[in-house]
Design a protein around this nucleic acid. Structure first.
Ligand SMILES: [Zn+2]
Ligand SMILES: [Zn+2]
Ligand SMILES: [Zn+2]
Ligand SMILES: [Zn+2]
Lengths: 162, 162
DNA sequence: TTCCTGTTTGTTATACTGTAACGATGGTCA
DNA sequence: TGACCATCGTTACAGTATAACAAACAGGAA
């Protein structure tokens, strides 16, 4: 096998991650302005919290953080913000984990393919057109028209595989 | 496009579905005997209930059924049976629905690819090696070793697409 | 400005999904 | 028989998500 590239999410050091957060927030701000939707302080804050690592964020963990900053926070507070972020393609929901992860390629609404390391918990996103096409083709072969797909792989990232 | 085959799950008529259930139970019975694990009445009954349609079964719906037949049923009753059935490859869990579906190709433990019709609710299973290989290859290309995967597609079956 | 309107947020309550813990039961085998 | 292990019954609770309605707020019309 050729020397593989390593996905950014698996390369990013936990102690040098601020740029990822800033980039995500800046992009979201721009896209929201373009779309004429409101990037409120709450939504911004939840996006920052989701992006606080390349690891899945659980809704009730986010809620705990929000409560520290604003006592009135409750489940709908975080779920509504997450709904907004997911609908606008800034965050993806990981179905196999009941968790959320920042989208590395925000701006376009899309479903990616997620690589979830069972050792370190980091998650990388692919957005591979070949995969989408093959899946669509295989579905069509049995008469099924796919509209959206959930693809999540559990395994080991390069660093954890040693 | 060539005339597509239609997946059995989408062809099966609701009023002529008994054979599917019998087949699933018979297979499970045989496989359990081969493996030396116990196919208890409870497990058999839950498998029948899961197979009562080609539609996803929710755990608490199954529980309601069980309660009608045995008052002592509680969440662990159904979840333990489902765990057994999933572990042995007789049933799959659909992550995007929090639901369960009978495996059309039981006996070998495997992860399939699931086609979920958003109109009629039926679910068909693929088990396509090309898809698995391509996904594994794409993951390897970024240094990730996949071990198990969740692939679920929402869309329209041939009948519902009209 | 004031009013109107639609969106966002606060608040309470509840529904849905899943597991921990421990004792009772029931096969299997020495 | 008794010891052992898997299964099941039972209670309690943890974790995930939404319904419903009121309050606050932004943006535009009068
Ligand atoms: Zn980063
Ligand atoms: Zn890792
Ligand atoms: Zn059938
Ligand atoms: Zn259909």
């Amino acid at each position: 096998m050729v020397n593989p590239e390593i996905a950014p999410a698996f390369r990013c050091r936990d102690d040098d991650h601020a740029a990822c957060v800033v980039n995500a927030v800046t992009t979201a701000e721009r896209v929201c302005k373009e779309r004429g939707v409101r990037f409120t302080p709450l939504r911004r804050r939840v996006l920052e919290l989701v992006w606080s690592g390349h690891r899945p964020a659980k809704a009730y963990q986010l809620l705990e953080q929000l409560k520290l900053e604003h006592a009135g926070s409750a489940p709908p507070t975080v779920y509504r913000a997450l709904d907004f972020l997911v609908d606008n393609g800034f965050v993806h929901r990981l179905e196999s984990l009941n968790a959320f992860i920042g989208c590395g390629d925000a701006g376009e609404k899309h479903g990616g393919q997620f690589l979830i390391c069972r050792e370190c918990g980091r998650v990388a996103e692919l957005d591979d057109p070949e995969l989408k096409q093959l899946l669509a083709r295989k579905a069509q072969a049995v008469g099924f028209t796919g509209e959206s797909s959930t693809i999540e792989v559990e395994g080991l990232c390069a660093r954890c595989a040693g």
